[in-house]
Amino acid sequence: MMRKSAADSNLHGLADAELERHRWAASVGDVGSAWWALERAHIVSQSDLLLHLRVHVIMLVYALRTADLREAGGQLLRLALAPLGTLSGRTPIGNSGRARVDPFAPMPIPGDLRRALEEAGG
């Protein structure tokens, strides 16, 4: 049985907090805030393959739930690309994971997430 490192647990905790923020925003119909939280969860998840895939699946489901077919298509593409990027260590750091952005483009990491990732060891 493989044990998670403290850094892995901390990354999962950060991602889970953002996914909870997404669930709350989605439950009250705040689509913008729901996507914002998913983008932040994506940034946090990029170094962990299973977590990264989980976030993209949640993004796909939310795109379908909000009838955003362009986003859903983009998430299908990213689900195919995520294993390659994560396993090769070549994920574009800070990328929001949305269909409207280049899947290969690095993006600035929000300051609060950067600090949390540094503290988490990620």
Rank of each mutant, 00 (worst) to 15 (best):
Q46N: 09
G13W: 09
A80S: 13
A37G: 06
A67K: 13
R23N: 14
H52Y: 09
R54N: 11
A72I: 06
D8T: 14
A7Y: 04
H42G: 02
E118V: 11
A105N: 05
A15M: 08
A41M: 08
A80I: 15
L11C: 03
G89E: 01
G85M: 15
L49H: 11
G74K: 02
A116V: 04
G29T: 02
R21A: 15
E20L: 14
R115I: 14
E119A: 15
R21K: 14
L84Y: 13
I93S: 09
D30R: 13
P92Y: 00
M107L: 14
G97Y: 00
E20D: 14
L49T: 06
V55T: 05
V31C: 11
R54P: 02
R23S: 15
V44A: 08
D8C: 05
T66M: 05
I43T: 11
L53A: 13
L117T: 03
V55M: 10
A41S: 01
Q75V: 11
T66E: 10
F104N: 08
P110Y: 04
A116M: 03
G74V: 01
E18D: 13
L81F: 00
L11I: 11
A6Y: 07
V57K: 12
L19A: 08
H56R: 03
P103N: 05
A120V: 01
S9G: 04
A82G: 07
T91N: 10
A105R: 15
Q46Y: 00
L113Q: 04
G29M: 04
S27H: 10
A15K: 03
D68Y: 08
A15R: 09
L87K: 11
H12A: 08
G85K: 13
G122E: 10
R3V: 12
R23D: 15
S33I: 11
I43M: 11
N10H: 13
D30Q: 05
S33P: 06
G97I: 10
H42I: 03
R40L: 03
G94I: 07
T66W: 07
A63N: 00
E118M: 12
D48G: 12
S9C: 07
R114V: 07
A34R: 00
R40E: 08
D16V: 09
I43G: 01
G29P: 02
T86W: 01
D8K: 10
G97C: 01
I109G: 09
L69C: 03
L53M: 15
E20G: 01
Q46G: 04
L84I: 15
A67P: 04
A99F: 06
P83A: 02
L11R: 15
A17R: 15
A99C: 07
A105S: 14
Q75F: 04
P92G: 09
H56C: 04
Q46P: 02
G29F: 01
R114L: 14
R78H: 06
A120K: 07
Q46A: 05
N95S: 11
V44E: 05
A63L: 03
D16G: 01
E20V: 12
R70K: 14
A34K: 06
R21L: 08
R90N: 13
S88M: 03
P92E: 03
L38I: 05
R115S: 13
R21P: 08
I93H: 07
A15D: 01
A105K: 15
L51D: 09
Q46T: 00
R3Q: 14
S88H: 12
G85Q: 15
R23G: 00
A34H: 10
S45T: 04
M1R: 12
L76P: 00
G74Y: 09
A63E: 06
A41F: 00
I43P: 10
L49V: 08
E39H: 03
